[in-house]
Computed example of a mutant assay.
Amino acid sequence: MSFLRDPKRLVATLIAGVSGLMVLLDFAGSGGLIAFIAQTLVRWAALITAIALLIGILSVAWSHLQRVRQRHAEWGYSLVLLAGMLLVIVVGIFFPLPSRTGIVLPRSLAEQPIHVLFAMLYQPIASSLLALLAFFSLSAMLRALGRRSVDALVMIGIALVVLVVQLPPVATLPGVTAVVQWMNDYVALAGARGLLIGAAIGALVASVRVLLGFDLPYLDR
């Protein structure tokens, strides 16, 4: 009855449900008109996503540009963000590439200049953040030891065992390699599969709730 009292919600739910059902049937192998409608909907969604991404980039750039112009607190970070954004766009679009027919411009941001830029800038930064993760993990372990809970002690014990068995002097001991391989093949893989199955079930339930109109993330509330 709530749908009948709220035409906006009813129309939005019908559009979302029918669109999702069309795309789902297309994935199931339906052809003909359903496949055409589903492909059209997917292209529309890709176009809307690209437009939304462009608007978001312009909004972020304008916001940080205002921070730089007005010299707000920590405006230097905004300047770095704008410089990085401009560098990626310029390198990805206007950086010339050699080819058999001469020098050409890249056709997309997935061309080679972007990979070089990521290898020079992004990968070292990501490696530094991962290196800092070890210190954060050590800090979390010390805090967990301070609480003296059983769950924390079990997790710390397992982590220490995994770290110790991977040391070169320990890994060369007889039977250690087989035990580690067994743990990876059964214990770790079972946990990873459980997480994937749980995530898949959660995504399925969330999708069904959206299709049936129980959750309406597309409505402007």
Results as ranks from 00 to 15, higher is better:
166 Q>K: 12
105 L>P: 02
126 A>T: 00
82 L>H: 07
144 A>C: 07
82 L>D: 11
168 P>V: 06
127 S>C: 00
203 A>C: 06
94 F>Y: 08
90 V>N: 03
114 I>N: 05
115 H>Q: 12
76 G>F: 06
142 L>W: 05
160 L>N: 09
189 L>R: 13
203 A>W: 07
161 V>Q: 10
185 D>M: 06
116 V>G: 02
100 R>A: 10
126 A>M: 00
139 S>N: 00
126 A>L: 03
159 A>S: 15
107 R>L: 12
144 A>T: 12
155 M>W: 15
107 R>H: 08
87 L>I: 09
89 I>N: 03
145 L>F: 12
75 W>K: 04
114 I>L: 14
118 F>N: 13
112 Q>R: 12
104 V>D: 11
215 D>W: 10
180 V>A: 15
169 P>S: 01
91 V>S: 11
172 T>V: 07
74 E>N: 09
206 A>G: 01
185 D>C: 01
124 P>N: 01
85 M>W: 04
199 A>K: 09
201 I>C: 03
128 S>Q: 01
86 L>W: 07
159 A>E: 09
194 G>K: 09
162 V>N: 08
204 L>K: 02
184 N>K: 12
78 S>R: 02
98 P>K: 01
96 P>L: 01
165 V>C: 14
81 L>V: 10
92 G>W: 03
191 G>W: 13
114 I>H: 08
95 F>D: 02
99 S>Y: 05
99 S>Q: 04
159 A>M: 11
142 L>T: 07
125 I>W: 00
206 A>E: 04
152 A>L: 04
106 P>W: 05
193 R>N: 14
164 V>D: 03
159 A>I: 04
209 R>W: 05
118 F>G: 00
173 L>H: 04
117 L>H: 12
101 T>D: 11
93 I>V: 11
73 A>D: 11
135 F>H: 09
82 L>A: 09
96 P>G: 01
119 A>I: 01
136 F>W: 08
93 I>M: 07
166 Q>W: 10
107 R>P: 02
154 V>N: 07
164 V>W: 08
120 M>W: 08
78 S>P: 11
210 V>Q: 14
185 D>N: 14
215 D>E: 15
123 Q>T: 02
87 L>A: 13
178 A>T: 15
182 W>N: 12
163 L>T: 10
136 F>H: 04
142 L>D: 06
106 P>D: 07
125 I>Q: 00
164 V>R: 06
204 L>Q: 08
153 L>I: 13
165 V>L: 11
126 A>D: 04
